[in-house]
Design a binder for these strands. Structure first.
Lengths: 208, 208
DNA sequence: GTAATGTTTGGACAGTTGCCCAAGTCGATC
DNA sequence: GATCGACTTGGGCAACTGTCCAAACATTAC
């Protein structure tokens, strides 16, 4: 087998990232230690600082990689849904696969919090989520949504995360039960293009 | 000065709780140390373990106390709002006072996450939030909401937290801009009592 | 006065942390 | 063969952690 050193190094690096992704939900962002990650990845403790400058660097890389995969998959699937109501149903169905206390949900939440203390992480995660929101917004308009698609997409994305958040505390909370009000939001928007009586509302506030 | 020993102890204990409430958002739930809290409270390091069995105990007590005050205040103010639309507006207005990266928001989020690893905290925080949701649900029905008030309240509470979450990443996200879709969600529920079966939007049945 | 009670102090303890580094392994290249 | 470079090892270090404790302190009861 022609396993070059470089190739071997890449797989080791990936194993470290995977170990970090698994550990953050278990012990929390700040609870992950170099020795933990190394043991989980099956390598010597010192190897962590060969591939990453610091533990934080490792966590940031691991978290962003995971989020990118998750959002891309979600956006791709959503794009395949023919109409809005069906898309919402599918999203909530997808959401019910996450208990709110499962590793994927927890990792995302941990990233949100860590990003408030890590400017670089906030910047890069913000770009990822902004991209997802834009995809959802264009999907909404393409499917005939008449209101402020930007605002609706922002609210939809926020609601999804909020539901996930609340499920962490109340596992009995069934996302499917929330389909009614959530669909009402968008179907109402389709027939009532002007939801707010005030000026044309934009999601962004800080614009000259 | 008639400062009894017991009274002095109580104020010291409160100072420790206040210090913990201030520190969790700054350094994260897991980043708070005994010496940090003691220094912030202006007492000797050892005093923490006189008033609390462990650092975790201190954090749980501090977090629950803060959450109780916040939710009680919110519920009381909401009860005073005469109609649903106005209440939603007020809630979002209130929410815009929180940047999503402010101490109050961060403490709540940190508690959510910590609760996934601390059964006792999850139990007690779940009770508090369940109570708040019940208050909102009865407020909705009392104001004429015809759909599933429980589901609507759950979704509303989740949306609020989700918006807070997203604002942490995108400070430019203006809650007021989300008023339109969010109002649509509940006003639509007022005219369409059965949301699941009838997705059609031709609802003109106005209730007197 | 003395004794009892509740609170505070500052240091001690063992364990853990992130980060570093000299020595080592192993395949690719000469 | 020898040499090179990428990668890995396991231990070392100073700094920090939660928890504990004997002693000091202040306040109240006798």
């Amino acid at each position: 087998m022609a396993t070059h050193s470089a190739e071997r190094g890449r797989t080791t690096r990936q194993r470290l990232l995977d170990a970090a992704v698994a550990l953050v939900p278990e012990v929390g962002w700040g609870g992950v230690t170099t020795r933990m990650v190394a043991e989980r990845a099956g390598v010597a403790p010192g190897v962590v600082h060969y591939h990453f400058a610091s533990v934080t660097d490792l966590l940031v890389a691991a978290g962003l990689g995971f989020a990118a995969g998750l959002l891309d998959g979600l956006a791709a699937e959503l794009a395949a849904r023919p109409d809005i109501g069906e898309g919402i149903d599918w999203l909530l169905g997808e959401l019910s696969r996450y208990s709110g206390a499962d590793p994927a949900s927890l990792l995302i939440l941990e990233m949100f919090l860590a990003s408030t203390r890590l400017p670089e992480l906030r910047e890069r995660l913000g770009v990822q989520i902004g991209g997802f929101r834009a995809v959802v917004a264009s999907w909404l308009t393409a499917r005939g949504y008449r209101g402020d698609a930007e605002a609706a997409a922002a609210l939809l994305a926020a609601s999804l995360d909020g539901i996930m958040l609340h499920r962490a505390l109340d596992p009995g909370l069934d996302p499917a039960a929330l389909t009614g009000p959530l669909r009402a939001m968008f179907t109402a928007g389709q027939t009532a293009p002007d939801p707010a009586s005030g000026p044309r509302t934009s999601t962004r506030r800080t614009e000259a």
